[in-house]
Simulated scan of single mutants.
Amino acid sequence: MHSTTLHADNRAEVAAALAQDHLIVACLCAAWCGTCSSYRTSFEELAARHPEKYFLWVDIEDHADIVGDLDVENFPTLLIQRHETVAFFGTMLPDPNVAHRLIETIAAQDDAELARLAASTAERRQWQQECNLRKLMGE
């Protein structure tokens, strides 16, 4: 499996995919970012290593209407979500092995543990309110 790139003409398809029961791994980048351009191949390799997960590439400038309020401080930024729980939102070293370990760690946690972690800090509670891709795509 490969990643999906969000475009204006596939928003309904992406929203339907996000509503399904699998881990979502989204990379928030910008077309002008050289680091993002070089990370794209690694992101595709991660998607191939995790075919049971949904990988989404989002250009934050092309889709500012969706991610405009998210505080993307640097690139690449990963957002990992299961159901309504945002498990991770932050800048990721452009190293596919680091991302792979993070994805594996989150995937191994059950829903109760993810919910506990989501409520464990003010920052993580804020992710639940502001970074939920399912909600952002539905608005």
Rank of each mutant, 00 (worst) to 15 (best):
D110S: 02
I103D: 01
A48R: 01
Q129I: 15
V25I: 15
T105V: 03
V72H: 13
W57R: 04
L102Y: 09
V58Y: 00
P96N: 10
T121Q: 08
T35V: 15
Q129K: 12
R116W: 03
H50S: 01
D110M: 05
M92F: 00
F43W: 00
R125Q: 15
H50Q: 05
Q129C: 03
R124H: 09
G90R: 07
R40W: 06
Q81L: 12
K53A: 14
T85V: 10
A26Y: 04
Q81V: 11
W57K: 03
T105C: 05
R125T: 06
K135F: 11
L78P: 01
C27Q: 15
N132E: 14
P76C: 10
H63T: 11
E130R: 14
A17Y: 03
D95I: 14
A119L: 06
N74I: 14
E73Y: 14
T121I: 02
R11T: 08
W57L: 08
I66L: 12
G34D: 02
Q81A: 04
A31F: 13
D110I: 05
T35D: 07
D111F: 02
N10A: 05
R49F: 01
S42C: 08
L78T: 01
K53M: 13
A15M: 01
H7Y: 11
I24H: 12
Q109K: 12
A48Q: 09
D95H: 11
N132T: 11
E45G: 03
H22G: 06
L70C: 12
V58K: 08
I106L: 04
V67R: 04
Y39G: 06
M137V: 05
I24W: 05
N132D: 15
R82Q: 12
E52T: 05
S42G: 11
A15Q: 12
V14R: 06
R11H: 06
A12C: 01
A99C: 03
Y54M: 11
V98I: 15
N74L: 11
D110A: 02
Q126D: 15
T41V: 09
I60L: 07
R116D: 08
H63N: 09
L102F: 09
G90D: 11
N74R: 15
T41R: 11
T41A: 15
C33Q: 13
A119C: 03
H63Y: 07
R125Y: 02
Q128F: 03
H7P: 02
A108G: 04
F43K: 00
E84W: 06
D65N: 14
H50E: 01
S3T: 00
